[in-house]
Amino acid sequence: MGRYVARRLLQMIPVFIGSTLLVFSMMYALPGDPVRALAGEQAVDPVQIAAMKKELGLDLPLWHQYLNYLTGLFQGDFGTQIATQRPVAEEIARAFPITIRLALFAFVFTTVVGIAMGVFAGLKADMLRDRTLLLITLLLISVPSFVLGFLAQVFFAHQLGWVDPNVSPEAAWDELVLPAVVLGSLSLAYVARLTRTSVAENLRADYMRTAVAKGLPRRRIIGVHLLRNSMIPVVTFLGTDIGTLMGGAVVTEGIFNVQGVGNAVFQALRHREGSTVVGIVTLIVIVYLVASLLVDLLYAVLDPRIRYA
């Protein structure tokens, strides 16, 4: 187990280098540069621009710039934003917790509500409540989440006036309820369906019949014997879902004007702030990798037939 974890952690190094390099090159390839973006529409002396670029190391070839960036990173320096002169780390420290909070909120909502709905429907497959679930989830899957987001905003904020259409810069928990529900709704539909199918299938398993024959109470048959087995595929899905939610958060943030990572990346792109974009994207990749490692380990706990060596 220890060796497995070590190997998985080591595997993250090439993924880390690959993803930073990829994003870095993409930023490099984009037309325009941060210095010109800083100047805006004004006509600036090209000599002055060249001098500034030289000072910032932006005149160097791609590989050299990348090397400088990595060197800084290993010394714990994410770089400095050119326009604001603030350290990138500061911007990350401000934006990340908000997005993490939003994604986590959506994740908990997805997991708890999705599994509950799935179990509820799966226990009585093909009955009314099961068909209702299939219909609702089909709807959630087929409507794009930004459409859902705008609809929710119009309805709850503008029509009913229950919430503010825009989330304040502090992004308190209660303000994030609506964005989190919108963000989680697609995953919720998948989790509910997956749980439902898994429960309905395991309900027919031979070991369930054994559990009844043992004279166990119903609560135990379902809570211990059925759920442990039914959760295995769901947990796998939830693992990949954390990353999807982080990515989806960027879109949802736009709709509700949440000042999180999505907003930060958008601003940074406009100003061609390469180091900010690379830093944030890299962190998202790392969150994704760590989450999927955790889920793989949880998977082994749930299913003893899986052994990691």
């Binding site: 031979d206 070991y207 559990a211 024959a213 043992k214 749930l302 299913d303 003893p304």
Partner: peptide, 20 residues
Amino acid sequence: RGRKIAMIFQDALSSLNPVL
């Protein structure tokens, strides 16, 4: 069930819970 009348099934592998 279980206390007074118990049952042994044909396929022990599928009749035992794989995750317990």
